[in-house]
Amino acid sequence: MTIKDNAQTVFVIDDDMDVRDSLKWLLESVGLNVQTYENALAFFEAFDTSASGCIIMDVRMPGLSGINAQKRLSEYNIELPVIMISAHGNVDMAVTALTQGAVTFIEKPFDDQLLIDHVHSALERDRDRFAQRCSQSRIRDCYDRLTRRERQVLELIVKGLSNQEAADELGINRKTVEGHRANMTAKMKVDSFAELVQVAIALGLVQGIGKS
């Protein structure tokens, strides 16, 4: 499964209606879907966590500022790339936004093509995130289909144990381990030991690497 620009949305959050309207016109002129919000709270309330795309957000807004709204994205399970914009930017503000994960910080007035380029870059980053999530989901689904013994064999093999050593560890014979290993690699849809290790890293089965 893949996602394209026309399946993604650029979410514009700015308290200035003229800025919202001009950005909407600009981005729609290059074929992008755009939704606008006058403040971050309105965006949080309306956001669908299954949506993909990116966020363009003003740094300074009444009430909840863009900087503080950026800090709260994770509370709403929002992982979209963020482009911060400001008419009153300064170095400290830019550093804060970028440190918190913004992909870029642009000062108004900005060059239209520059903004469009940054938006396309952010959308590409979101597609990469989506692809990685799908890949991890597929790996987890395959892993969940393994039997308890196949999981044990997987964990021992990726730790570097031979079939015989894994058999000794589990108290079974080597032929049985080989059978479990064949079934396990087929279910995990891998063709080599290197691919098996990559799967184990994605699942967090290799100590000190990856996340569980």
Rank of each mutant, 00 (worst) to 15 (best):
R60Q: 13
A167W: 04
T36H: 07
L161S: 10
D117I: 01
I78R: 06
D48L: 13
N6G: 02
M17E: 13
I83C: 04
G63T: 06
T99D: 13
D112R: 03
H120S: 05
M1E: 10
D18N: 15
V91P: 05
R149L: 08
L123P: 00
S22D: 10
V153R: 05
I201T: 14
Q136T: 11
K71S: 12
V103H: 07
I201Y: 10
Y143T: 00
E124L: 09
M188K: 00
S137G: 13
H180T: 02
A122G: 01
N39G: 02
I201N: 12
Q8V: 02
E28R: 10
K211R: 15
L27W: 02
K71E: 12
L196I: 05
F43D: 04
D112Y: 07
R129V: 09
K159E: 14
V19D: 08
N183W: 04
G179L: 03
V95F: 09
Q8G: 00
V30D: 08
S22L: 09
N39W: 03
D18A: 14
S121T: 11
N77L: 11
D5L: 06
Y143E: 05
E124W: 04
G66Y: 03
R140H: 09
R127C: 04
D191Y: 01
V95H: 05
N39S: 06
I85G: 10
N6Y: 08
D14I: 07
N90A: 10
N6E: 13
S137D: 13
S192K: 00
V95C: 03
K159D: 15
A40F: 02
G101W: 05
F11T: 04
K211G: 14
L115Y: 03
L32N: 03
D58W: 05
Q207W: 13
C142Y: 12
F11I: 07
D92I: 10
G204W: 09
A200D: 07
K24M: 14
